Simulated scan of single mutants.
Amino acid sequence: MSTEPTAPSQYENLSIKMVLSDMDGTLLRSDGSLPDGMFDLLRRLNHSGITFVPASGRQYATLANLFDGSTAGMPIVAENGAYIVRDGMELASFTLSREFVVATVELLRRIASKGCEIGVVLAGKNAAYVERDDEAFMEQVRTYYHANEVLSDQLAYNDEILKIAIFDFDDAESGTLPYLEHLRSDHTVVVSGTHWIDIMDPRVNKGLAVRTLQEKLSIPKDQTMAFGDYPNDIEMLEAVGYPFAMANGHEDVLSVSDFIAPSNEDGGVITVLSNILAQN
């Protein structure tokens, strides 16, 4: 499968009104930072009437901090589509029942007791709640969940839970995922990174978030573009007229995308959008 970036001539003269971008492995560099020139690009997109939307498995608070000072009018899709916020106002959310959260946490405790090295995050609207507090796990938690709280009993949370995230210290797809396959019958279960698995309401994926924004902002599919690199981005890419996989993307993402952007380390999202702005 070719991972050669698409020539700019193949996406000339596009009429784009909204761009969604995944964060890790897509927009962000491997150290988690925004690429150089991102804030200037946001100003140029805004001037051209194009809405930029971060769409990530990360927490809303984390994404808002990342784009601090540039979030006015910017919709933010957090928790893989379970929470959509614009200018501090909730546009949509999809939460998990208390009964399901309790049953799943108890299941994950049993999985951990069998020797799986995992940490569990309950991603709420106000904070992320964890029980395990060793530094190796908390380093991962702090990266993606700036608002976090350690509880002696994780189930003592007082919040609406948007997502259950599992960090597998080995490989999530081959390690923890097989224990969770049965949950897919009535919930969304996605591998969102080498070490992460997300469990959400069965309606939730980034594609639902795209369609929600298209409806609320009156932007059609054929004026929407998206960038992604991992399987949790597939529904988002399928919901837009111009789907871009990153050159460093998972083979499943490459297979559903019409275009390929340079890798995240090569500033692929900025490169493609800069080319589009230069042509219009």
Rank of each mutant, 00 (worst) to 15 (best):
N148E: 03
K206N: 04
A103N: 09
L63R: 01
W196R: 01
V191I: 14
M246A: 11
N65F: 01
Q10K: 13
L254I: 15
A82K: 02
T104G: 05
H182V: 11
A245N: 12
G228N: 09
Y129F: 09
I76E: 00
L183C: 06
A78N: 12
G88D: 01
E181R: 13
T3M: 13
N13H: 12
V105Y: 15
S192W: 11
R203P: 02
E131Q: 14
D222T: 08
I219A: 04
N205S: 04
S274Y: 05
V19M: 06
G249Q: 11
F169K: 06
H47W: 02
L217H: 00
V256K: 12
G115I: 14
N13I: 00
N13R: 11
P8C: 10
C116E: 15
I166D: 02
G69K: 09
M74Y: 01
V120F: 10
L155W: 03
F137P: 05
F52I: 02
T3H: 14
T271R: 10
N280R: 13
D233A: 05
D168M: 05
G267R: 07
R86L: 02
E106P: 08
M74E: 06
V272Q: 02
P178A: 08
L151F: 01
Y230M: 06
R110D: 13
A261Q: 08
R203A: 15
T95V: 14
R211K: 10
P75Q: 04
L45D: 12
I161E: 03
Q59P: 10
N46Y: 02
S48G: 00
E131N: 05
I270P: 00
T212M: 04
E238A: 14
D168K: 07
V210D: 01
S97G: 08
N80H: 07
S192E: 05
N46E: 15
V253N: 13
L20F: 15
L277M: 05
H250G: 10
G32F: 07
G57D: 00
E79F: 13
M246Y: 06
A239P: 10
L27K: 04
G119A: 14
A64N: 09
D40T: 12
G207E: 02
S2I: 06
F94Q: 14
A165C: 14
N65Y: 03
Y145P: 02
I164N: 04
E106Q: 15
G207Y: 01
V101P: 05
H195M: 03
